[in-house]
Every structure is written in C-alpha cells, then in structure tokens.
Write a protein that binds this DNA or RNA. Structure first.
Lengths: 197, 197
DNA sequence: ACGCGGTCGTACCGACCGGTATGATAAACA
DNA sequence: TGTTTATCATACCGGTCGGTACGACCGCGT
C-alpha cells in the first residue's frame, strides 16, 4: 500500500533532507510532519542513516527514473526529448526548486566526502544518468542529429556536470532568470553538437 | 601580523568547514587544532556565524583573488591564461581537492538556502568571478581568439556553472581522471568559441 | 478464548553543541 | 608604579540530537 506509514516517513524525510540536508535533518521534525513517533520510525528503519539511504534509493532515484531516465530511454527522438525535458523543467520551475536546487546534487555535495555508502549509491544514480544521456547521444548520432565525431560518454558526463552546475548557480542567485540564462547556454552547447548544416 | 591568533583561527576554521561543512563544523575541533580555547575564539568573533562569514571573506575570497581573479585580470592574453590556470589546477590536483571539492561551491550549496547573509557574500564572489571571466572573453574577442558573436556575460556564467559542476562530479566519483575528463570537455567548449579557422 | 508477532506510542538517556560568565595574565599608558 | 584594557583560559549552562527501553494495541491463527 502506498498510504502506509513507511512511505509517509520516506516522503517527509525527503522533504526534510531536501530543505536542510541530511546531517541537519531532524528526525523530530520528520515525525512532527507525519504525526508519527519514534517508535514507528525505528520500527521501519534501523537508524537515521538507513532512513537517508532509503530516501536516496526509493525517492530520489525513483523520481529521476520516472521523470528523466525512462522518458529519455523510451523516446524515439532522444535529442528532441532531452530538449523537451529541459524545457518542461524550465516552464514548471517553482520557487521551491530554485531555492533548494537539485536533490541529487545536494546529497552528492554533502555526503560524498563523509560517507562511502551514500557516495556509492549516489554515484550509481549518476552513472545511470550518464549512460542514459550517452545512449541518447548515440541514437542521436544515427539519426544524424549529433555529429559522428563527438565522444558520447564524455559529452554525457559534461552535460551532467553543467546541468548540476546550473542548478548550483541558480540556488545562490535565487532567480529563475539566472537559471534560464544558464540553461540556455547548455542548450546552445547541445545545439553546437549538431552536424554543420 | 599573520601569525596572530585570529589568522590561526581563520585558517583552522576554513579547514574544518571545508571538510565538514559549516553547520557540522565543530568549534571544539577548531580549538583543538589551534591549541586555543573558547575564550580566544569568542574574543575575536561574536558567534559561529561571524566566524564563518569571516572565513568566506578573508580566506575563500582571498584565495580565489590571488589564484584566479587577479592572474586572469593581469594577463595579457586572458584566454591562454584561463586555459593555463585550468591546466595548473589539473597538474597540482591533490587527493584533498578531489575528496572535498571546491570550497566556494560547497558553501554555496549548503548555506545559500538557509542564510541570506552567506548567500549574499558568496553571491558577490560568484559575480566577481563571472565578471572576471566575461572580461577575459571580451579581450579575447578583440584579440580575435573568441568569436565576436558570443555573449560574453552569459558564456561566463555557463563556464562558471560547468566548472563547479565538474568539481561536483569529481567529488562523488573520487577520481582525478573523472575530473580531467570532465574538465577536458570544458576546455573543448572554450576552444569551440574560437573563430572558424 | 488465548497467545503471539507485527506495529506503533511514550518516556527517557547520554552525548554533544554553541554560547556565557568569570578569572588570570600581560601589555600599554598615565 | 598603579591602573586600565586587550587577550586568552576555565568551567559550566541550556538545549537539541540520535537512539533505546518498554508498554499498548490489534489482527490472526488455533
């Protein structure tokens, strides 16, 4: 059931971690949001760390799978789909996203240096993202929308880095226009990968 | 004097914040590193937040000024200087930098959403960086090393975002090659701004 | 009717943190 | 020399945190 106490805890924990970071996230606050208590929490999760890792796997990863990874994999024209996804993100940009940035990137920056398990799990999501992007570029090549001489793997990595970087800038500037400006350059970069007309 | 207790506190605080983030930084640990006590600390700084802001202004900003901003401003051929700075950073890359990433970016990601003062100060450094980069691109244009049709301001912003993004990826992957790979693409992007030969 | 395992609430602990109050010391100045 | 002022040490406080112990409840099989 999706209305159980465990999913409720995961969702509230995601919110709290998204707003404060994992280390600063307060279990008490999560329990206040859900109306539950520590007994319920420690029945489903052995410790705070386990809760955080579950958030990574079952919330962060799942959201990216459904909103980006699978749409990109199932698209017949992946390059157009990629630009469309970015466009959607820009149109649906709310204050919350501008204020707090990318959930995955936040956790990566905070947890990678101090917890190997977090680092591995987050790195797996990053690798998956990179592979999805690289595959999109490859089919873009056979569809002659991407030049044949571009290295799809390293380009995918760079696009990923630039994407997260744009989020980081916007998070400080606290303005959607700054994010748009930054992302427009990323789109221009992808356009520059097209064959010379 | 540069050997006083205040600079010693600032340096130790920078290390601690760099390794754990500001919120998780322990004043006790800083004092243990310096051999000082809380009396000394709270004589020079009114609270933990003031110490953190001083670290931003007097350590983080100053390091960037001396290693990147001023060298880029004083260079006769800024584009070559930019590529050289990146090359130096790659050659002198130590495990510490790979493990903990870019100090400025770390603070931006952690503090921007939760403290307006931090956000403003960090944003000022970011703006300065952007302007230095934009100016470098502009003189690159008059030296005919950058195409005349590129928007220097937005391009500078994008380069900045990509640069920080590369650090973020490397921080998770924990490998210098990943950073090199990522940064190579950034260099390739800058090369793509050159006039058609 | 009874027991039992899963589920969750309540009360509480020990540890750690940022911050404060106060005292000791030494330099600076009269 | 006497006094003030800057500098730093020591001891301690209030508060919050993650985590634990234990009890209540409830469905379910027998």
């Amino acid at each position: 059931m999706t209305h159980g106490t465990r999913p409720k805890l995961l969702e509230a924990a995601f919110r709290e971690v998204y707003e404060r970071g994992f280390q600063a996230a307060s279990l008490t606050e999560i329990l206040r949001d859900t109306g539950l208590t520590k007994g319920a929490l420690y029945h489903h999760f052995s410790c705070k760390r386990a809760l955080g890792l579950a958030v990574v796997e079952e919330v962060v990863r799942e959201r990216l799978e459904s909103t980006i990874f699978r749409p990109l994999e199932e698209a017949e024209r992946p390059i157009a789909a990629l630009l469309k996804i970015w466009g959607d993100k820009l149109r649906l940009l709310d204050d919350d996203a501008i204020e707090h940035g990318c959930p995955l990137n936040n956790l990566i920056q905070e947890m990678s240096p101090i917890d190997p398990e977090f680092r591995t799990r987050l790195g797996a999501i990053l690798t998956r993202w990179q592979e999805v992007l690289a595959q999109a570029l490859r089919t873009g090549q056979v569809q002659q929308e991407i030049r044949a001489d571009v290295n799809c793997d390293t380009t995918a990595l760079f696009i990923l880095a630039a994407w997260e970087g744009c989020w980081g800038i916007a998070k400080n500037q606290q303005s959607a226009p700054a994010f748009r400006q930054c992302l427009a350059q990323l789109q221009a970069y992808v356009e520059s990968l097209r064959p010379r007309s």
